[in-house]
């Protein structure tokens, strides 16, 4: 096993087909959504795989950090080949749906729910929906508020469904700060934002399954800011904020976070985060929230583009 890992690292990753988008024609929208769920659960986005592979080469030889990244890469390949979940915590199933004018969101809601039930039966998703008071598991990933659905009408004539599977370990280390934050000396400015971002990474340690990706939502209210932070996790790792100030802050906070030395799994090492993604929204004068959403290395995000004739692209 050790030898195998050594021949695999560093780049190039030998499995080009893992990076290819999936094309085809589905029997129905439910089938296409089911395929989206399968891809999200079993095949990590190519940019994340490449980044993990590059970071493995940067960790010192023989370290626990390097061993952890080696196992992570091996795990990704096993899951891809066997079409089994990359991580058993298939998390909250978050769907962002862009739909053409005239499409029924009631129908889409039913179809997504059907696909989620089917994906649970097939083992792409773990039964993960629990009554908050009785603790009873619904057994099929549905429940009050689950799956998590966001609908946005648009003027294009095709459907786009973005899916994120967000596990509990990383969700639990997300945070929300109200500036000013005296413990950290964080004021109501960009420097203050950076300080609380660093603190969020420090507090998370390895518990969010580092190396992770940190989404940051600046401003808004407690709800909209948190949503903004989480939406950043749909961005590719290469993507930079269109706002030059935030683009610089993203790069700076990635570098500074990695200086903390928390490393993969919190074992110590050079790779604590793979990326920092920031976005801002307006706020009311009295409130200045900074919300963070942490995504584990198993950053399971895929998007489905589905045309009227049910031809699809999943990537």
């Amino acid at each position: 096993m050790e030898e195998q890992q050594n021949t695999r690292a560093p780049e190039p990753w030998p499995r080009k087909e893992m990076f290819e988008p999936l094309h085809g024609k589905a029997e129905s929208r439910v089938d296409a959504i089911l395929l989206l769920i399968r891809e999200a659960s079993t095949n990590l986005p190519g940019d994340v795989i490449s980044s993990l592979s590059e970071q493995k080469a940067k960790e010192s030889d023989g370290s626990q950090a390097q061993r952890a990244l080696g196992i992570i890469l091996e795990n990704i390949e096993i899951a891809y080949d066997a079409k089994t979940p990359i991580c058993q915590d298939t998390g909250t199933n978050i769907f962002h749906v862009h739909y053409p004018v005239g499409t029924s969101t009631i129908a889409l809601r039913n179809e997504i729910t059907q696909a989620v039930r089917r994906a649970t039966e097939l083992g792409y998703l773990r039964p993960n929906s629990v009554d908050s008071i009785t603790g009873k598991n619904s057994g099929d990933n549905t429940g009050i508020g689950l799956p998590s659905l966001y609908f946005h009408e648009w003027e294009k004539d095709h459907l786009e469904i973005k899916l994120m599977l967000k596990g509990g370990g990383c969700e639990n280390v997300g945070a929300q700060y109200a500036l000013p934050e005296s413990r950290l000396g964080a004021g109501r400015d960009l420097a203050g934002v950076k300080k609380v971002v660093l603190d969020a990474v420090l507090q998370a340690q390895g518990r969010g399954c580092s190396p992770g990706i940190l989404g940051v939502g600046i401003g808004g209210d407690r709800v909209s800011g948190a949503l903004l932070a989480k939406e950043q996790l749909f961005r590719t790792l290469e993507d930079q904020s269109p706002d030059p100030l935030l683009a610089d802050a993203e790069a700076e906070m990635l570098e500074k976070s990695n200086q903390l030395g928390i490393g993969p799994m919190g074992f110590g090492g050079a790779t604590t985060l793979l990326s920092v993604k920031m976005a801002k929204m307006h706020r009311i004068p009295a409130s200045f929230f900074v919300s963070t959403s942490y995504m584990c290395w198993a950053s399971r995000r895929k998007s489905l583009v589905l045309k009227q004739d049910n031809t699809y692209i999943i990537e």
């Binding site: 000396g185 300080k195 660093l198 420090l202 340690q205 390895g206 030395g261 928390i262 919190g266």
Partner: peptide
């Protein structure tokens, strides 16, 4: 505990880094 060690070392590092953010 490795976790206690990393918490300590990363907290010290954070203190230094925070001092440099203006």
């Amino acid at each position: 505990s490795l976790h206690a060690d990393i918490l300590q070392s990363s907290s010290s590092a954070a203190k230094e880094i925070l001092g440099g953010i203006h």
